[in-house]
Design a protein around this nucleic acid. Structure first.
Lengths: 261, 261
DNA sequence: CGCAAGTTTGACGCTGCTCAATCACTGTGG
DNA sequence: CCACAGTGATTGAGCAGCGTCAAACTTGCG
């Protein structure tokens, strides 16, 4: 119900009404972008900080011989690079996987907000540290795990991240606007091998897929086989979400918890 | 010859005498640690920010089945996690590859320094952004390149980073206190395959190795074969210091915010 | 209906892994 | 000064996970 941005940040710091309404105001004015558009390109000198309100984005780089590597996903509520305007130029690009609602925040506006609300500043830094931790976990994922584990691990991560912003339904299903080629560019595998690995994940009743949509049939076992642990997402505030998640793991009919107090 | 920390930071922002001497003071008191020691362990709640003055460190994580992934190297002049004390617990560990001189900086001290010297703050953030960009490049490295390119790329990066702090000699050689197993844990390869790949790099006259020591025989070609570009290290003070940024940074300490001192 | 994008399948081969043995170096103690 | 042990480097043989190529199939959409 509250927007994804607020939901996410309340995971990271306790925010009062005044802070929340400041965050809500920060989301305006948003505009609509098309799937496939780039928000930022490698080499740009970024002027804005982008806040994704709706839809999916992804960070990517190209290798010399044309291989694309996806280095992060952006889901609703994610903010790109609080501090990117400090650097000279972007070393990677940010694109959109789906139609998206995006708010381009002028850097100065964000800085003022953080100066005025220390708790918001804290939450934003926290989120930024989680992004970095996620990069490290992805490195572990690609470096140490085989295809089956890699893809399973990725799905676990997305499942948790989307739960935080309320985008996972009661059947543990969510939208995933990603082709098998995109999955391959994320995990360092070829589309063909991704296909075969997905088949195995389905055969073992861990997931079910429809077009642009995935259902996590057995979250616990999926986490087990992939060595997934939520630690690196740093959601460990003894907040309500944690409890909800735990409940969901035990009995699979619990309602999707809201993040409020 | 200034210390490595100062050398590195002056790459990122123009620092005056007062700022430099503040940085030099920050390096005291340092203490000596042994190779193999851990500075920080996964699960710790870090109290200090560590500054590496001499020797090599590395960040690493373990997978469920015991595989170790090295996710970053720390070389002299590198500072760990300006903002780590914000998070609840470490999601990875930091160890030492060699005997090292380390300064454990209390978080408060660093914060005060950054408040007092905006240019230092700027340089530290810049360095932190470079660390993150490096993670992305490593992901590209492991995800898209084969063994030969991966290792070549890693050597290119280290060559550049060590040059910045004056640790590469006239023959393009430098100390590399890393076993082939360590190289494997960095690149997602087995020690055996690392060995064979190193042989090929030597055979093609790209590098030469002695014990704990490496010489880059042909830097240009090594960069070529691995697709290395130094962009992501953001050493380009070419278009830097743009006036906008200076203004933004100044306005931050100015009378704008209610939360400043 | 027909095209385009994405998914699926099959055959085949290579990169990189496994297991296991041997070799080289360095520091230690007799 | 040499025997020895420990760590790391090197080598070999066999194998499998994943890549490559190419074709067929399925779905969405104008």
């Amino acid at each position: 119900m509250p927007n994804a941005f607020v939901r996410k940040l309340t995971q990271f710091a306790p925010l009062g009404d005044e802070e929340i309404s400041a965050l809500v105001r920060l989301c305006e004015p948003a505009d609509l972008r098309n799937a496939g558009d780039d928000l930022v390109c490698e080499g740009d000198r970024p002027q804005h900080v982008y806040l994704l309100l709706d839809g999916w984005g992804y960070r990517y780089k190209f290798g010399r011989d044309g291989g694309r590597q996806i280095v992060a996903f952006l889901v609703p509520g994610d903010l790109c690079d609080i501090k990117a305007f400090l650097l000279d130029r972007m070393d990677h690009s940010i694109g959109l996987l789906s139609e998206a609602r995006v708010r381009a925040i002028p850097a100065i506006e964000l800085i003022e907000l953080m100066d005025r609300f220390p708790m918001i500043e804290r939450a934003l830094w926290w989120a930024s540290l989680v992004d970095e931790a996620t990069l490290r976990e992805w490195l572990l994922n690609i470096g140490q795990r085989d295809a089956f584990e890699r893809i399973a691990h990725l799905f676990c991560e997305l499942w948790v991240r989307l739960q935080v912003v309320g985008l996972v339904d009661a059947d543990d299903a969510f939208d995933l606007p990603l082709t098998q080629e995109g999955l391959g560019d994320t995990t360092g595998l070829t589309p063909v091998h991704v296909n075969r690995t997905l088949q195995r994940l389905r055969r073992e009743k861990l997931i079910a897929t429809r077009r642009g949509h995935i259902e996590i049939c057995d979250p616990r076992r999926l986490a087990e086989v992939s060595g997934f642990s939520r630690n690196y997402l740093h959601l460990t505030r003894d907040g309500p979400l944690d409890i909800n998640l735990r409940q969901r793991l035990n009995s699979r009919n619990g309602p999707v918890g809201a993040a409020g107090h």
